[in-house]
Design a protein around this nucleic acid. Sequence first.
RNA 1: GCCGAAGUGGCGGAAUUGGUAGACGCGCUGGACUCAAAAUCCAGUCUGGCUUACACCAGGUGCCGGUUCGAGUCCGGCCUUCGGUACCA
Length: 776
Amino acid sequence: KMHIGHWYNYGPTDSWARFKKLKGFNVFEPIGYDAFGLPAENYAIKTGVHPQDSTLKNISDIREMIKQMGGMYDWDAELMTCAPEYYKWNQWLFLQLYKRGLAYRKNAPVNWCPSCQTVLANEQVLNDGTCERCGTTVIQKNLTQWFLKITNYADELLAGLNKIDWPEKTKLMQTNWIGKSFGTEVEFAIEGHDEKITVFTTRPDTLFGVTYIVLAPEKELVQQITKAEFKAGVEKYIEAVKSFSEIERISTVKEKTGVPTGAFAINPVNGEHVPIWIADYVLATYGTGCVMAVPGHDERDFEFAKKFGLPIRKVILQPGTNVEEELEEAYTEVGTMINSGKYSGLRSDEGIEKISLDLEAKRVGRRKINYRLRDWLISRQRYWGTPIPIVYCNSCGEVPVPEDQLPVLLPYNVNFRPDGGSPLVSNHEFVNTKCPMCQGEARRDVDTMDTFVDSSWYYLRYLNPKFNHGMFDTKLANEWTPVDMYVGGSEHAVMHLLYARFVHKFLRDIGLVNSDEPFQKLIHQGTITNQGAKMSKSKGNVVEPQSFMETYGSDVFRMYLMFMGPYELGGDWSDKGIVGVERFVQRVYAMFKAHAISAKVNPPKEKYEISELNEVEKSIYRKVNQTIHKVDVEIENFRFNTAVAMLMELSNELKNLDECRKDLQSYSLERFAVMIAPLAPHLGEECWKLIGKEKSLYENPLWFDADEKALSVDNTTVVVQINGKVRAKIDLAINTPQENVKKIVFADEKIKSYTTGKEIVKEIYIPNKIYTIVVK
RNA sequence: GCCGAAGUGGCGGAAUUGGUAGACGCGCUGGACUCAAAAUCCAGUCUGGCUUACACCAGGUGCCGGUUCGAGUCCGGCCUUCGGUACCA
């Protein structure tokens, strides 16, 4: 069912789209259903209802509710990702990536529950590392899985951020996620082995301070180099590490653990032999999975060395300290290099360059750019998703399904909870197939794709979801994309929004779109929580909009969601203030009704001269135009809460409407109706009709510009401050010359009482606003 | 842990981006209307002090410190809450 979060996303966004429509833009506002994924599958396991049945049912329920909302969606462009006409193109996309070497298989760990004999999502693993269903400790198990080479685009994904109008914080999160770092790879020989250990470091200047080497426990090399008498300890440690999540492993507060391998590595800069350890704080997935430990100048290494009694050597001298002082903690900033052979005396940041060059010359190292970003693992051992279009043949090996045989249909009959693997294994008709190359016996890949694949290109499909000559209609795509306004929660700041950017760039590279980025402008709506927690079925704190719709109607509900607070912040749900919006709507409607007949027979002028208006009229005319001026900017920037507040202010001002000339009443009401129309579309149309307009506003879009002349004011209040405290407020004609202001200020009795007998140090005048006097 | 945000009356929030803190709304209090209630309308409402009252004074935007004539806004250091952390999407 729809919950308030959906409404919060769709309602205000529809208001923005309506605003654009009224302003004369050609607006395409589609809606659809991202329908594959884990929740439907879990629901099936729990209740036995097939994911396809529950999903289709939910979609038809949700469609009805969205229609009640009054969004101006293009229902001809509706799509759902679980339809074969849609996911066929996920498969086609996969094949294009595969053809170009951007889809490949390798081993990667999954969460495995040994008792349920199934793969678990991170979400299904509790904080203590146990299975949410049975409480068994979850372990990491390696499976061969499909990856997409998003890392090939790392640099472009970084650079492209400069070209798009996205929140700075989102761009920053993507930048940090990609995590480009400039460093050096250094090779350490291993005592008694031909193989070498390559470490990645951003601090080659600290090479002389290396006192041990740490390998990620899962590195294969560990098996080869571990000395016999250390084997037992190493094996035990590797087993123990399997139950830790990555977050736990790299936590800087968790006590460091690790064991020695008994092997030694040789430092290429000084020939020193240092012990090789394994520890879980080193990850196999980042850099080379090997770290040179410099306890003197790295916090984690320092802590580790302290705990295990490994030597700590000072090779960077902190400015203002002396060489003999012992290190209390790791010093990680720039300093003077010491105990570093011929490099001693250099500034450490210069040393980075020097040492790197020398390592390159000696062929034991090279400068290297490293990314934190990893390739995109898309294999899921689940049912409710897109089948991966690959078959495995005994003689031909891994064979892609030919494009003309797509889609590989997701079979209906499966066991959602099989023992030991992907649910699709249970359907033999699906699994057993012919090899497209040799027609021999072959087996299909039984995994499905990550649903982020579905959501990485749907905006292109929206333009014509029935298009059957390709993934989407390139002509339309080039007309309409990049998307002008994309609205979604900041929980998507990195993953979805990075994947979509990657896929868009790939589609550009194969000539299907001509733009570099999918979403030109991005806005995040905030999260609506309930009692401080994200709404979710499992927590049982979901608030449904239905009852509010029934009590107040969709306009009031929509406007209340907008009035609650800043759109990008969201907030905790409460219906406390909704009656305020209800009253406002009723007052507006009553106002239009009261003036309906008069408005029909007294058409307004296009503009009024301020001089021809009396005081009440002047005030109303000004307020109307100021409101137009501000509401325009506020809606444009998704500041709906203040837009609604301004219309409330205007409605308060219009309480005097009866005191002004009839045609000015019509003038005010026309503008009010147009301004309220995007925020409360049903009310807007109703008001528009009441004042005698025959055609719908949305059929004949209209938006008024403010009369610039009405925005200026005659008088202003100048605040007088003495030593930063407000002491008087003086009403003055606008743009009164400073000398005159000064005279008036110093003539003020109150100001006199604060200034007489004091020395005036300084006077600052901010025109039409503030006169500040500093006294001593 | 790491990355990114947020914190303002009894409550949701506003503040032209360094210039009158509390717009707009809820709630509450008082009044009008009513036989009465509901609805509606009008007035008041940051806290404390002083005053018959108008006024006036002091304090006040999570905490501590700094810059400035002036800080909710800028800088440094914390605290709390929220989002993400690569298999929820």
